[in-house]
Design a protein around this nucleic acid. Structure first.
Lengths: 202, 202
DNA sequence: TGGCTAGTGTTGACATTGTCAACATTGCTG
DNA sequence: CAGCAATGTTGACAATGTCAACACTAGCCA
């Protein structure tokens, strides 16, 4: 293709669609992402996207999957920064997780919600989410071995911790928490309460 | 109006709209609630609802508000059943809360989400939600006084607890938790971990 | 009793959306 | 360099939320 953008073929439309949709989602939520608006913003016709994605839901699944990659990178960075099994590291995972949600609310809702994604595409997305969850289970397992927390079914522990952190993120994203509340403090108190609770029967 | 349903005027359309919309929401989620489908199901024209609600968002807010009433009743019943400040009662609040969400997933998403409700209507809905939250803060306050949990900012404690329970409910509703997991056990473990964590520094 | 008004319901219309089929263009392969 | 497969466009359709114009009727006032 030519570089002046005037060519009939776009060249990298698939990637452009993904990044533009992602941008829109974080601008105004999933609801403003429209096949037609997407085309308009990329200087392409309304149905060009159908050459790259089966339908809107498939496109959104791809965006959500990219979101999972992004989140995983952030969490991996925590692991690399502070290796070992210190309790602080577990706390950091929680903080990074919530902060990711706050910075990418549209993405986060898409990743863990159902509303915007069709029934057939959901299993695929859940698979990706489960990959991340399995890593969390592993983390709890190794923390048990190091004696930092109570020995219990690590999957249950992971669900409890994930639930607490996911709930906090959701409440914040959905505007349920009063704006004058100290968010960082709230995040820290959540992780502390959890860890204290899990150390109890140690 | 006549009672055979053949009259021009419906008679109790407002109430009928609310209950029919609520039913649809719990059948297939907010997305299947359509002004036109609603009219069809009630044997009324597509725009009849506009005589009772400013727009679709206003109707959904009314449905969500009814959901809050319903949830409050359930929680109040717990308070009446087991008066006093035993730790079991706090645990029960959590269990009833999660169970409500599981039984009325569409309602729950509507009550605590943003997607389906317009920006202007949100504050009104948040006001209703805050009423419930304030009661939770009171509960934590009285539990502190009875010495059951650590003395800390009760608002923060309430946010932490609400977050954990809301997160668990959301994960379950959105199909994030594997189906072979013992849900009751998971709920109990969540509330136990929280309470243990809050007793730690007592 | 009769008629008027405000409340309630209907129909027609419009812009917007997702999506498909038919068509156009073009980069690449033989 | 011919043609094919990939990629993009346009026209069309059904569905949706919503408004304006119109229809019906219950209940109040004379």
């Amino acid at each position: 293709m030519t570089l002046d953008g005037s060519s009939y073929h776009h060249g990298g439309l698939r990637a452009a669609l993904l990044s533009e949709a992602a941008a829109m989602i974080d601008e105004g939520g999933t609801s403003i992402v429209t096949m037609r608006a997407l085309g308009r913003r990329l200087g392409v016709s309304r149905s060009a996207a159908y050459r790259h994605f089966a339908d809107k839901s498939a496109l959104l699944v791809a965006v959500a999957t990219a979101g999972f990659d992004h989140l995983r990178n952030r969490l991996d960075a925590v692991g690399a920064d502070a290796p070992g099994a210190g309790i602080d590291r577990l706390r950091q995972f929680g903080e990074v997780y919530v902060r990711f949600a706050l910075e990418n609310p549209g993405h986060y809702r898409l990743m863990y919600g159902k509303e915007a994604i069709s029934r057939e595409d959901l299993p695929e997305l859940r698979q990706v989410a489960n990959g991340l969850f399995d890593e969390l289970v592993n983390v709890f397992q190794s923390y048990q071995q190091s004696g930092a927390i109570e020995r219990q079914d690590p999957q249950l522990q992971a669900y409890v911790a994930w639930g607490a952190v996911h709930g906090l993120a959701s409440l914040l994203i959905e505007g349920q928490i009063l704006t004058d509340v100290d968010v960082d403090g709230l995040i820290r108190r959540t992780t502390s309460t959890l860890l204290d609770g899990m150390r109890a029967g140690r």
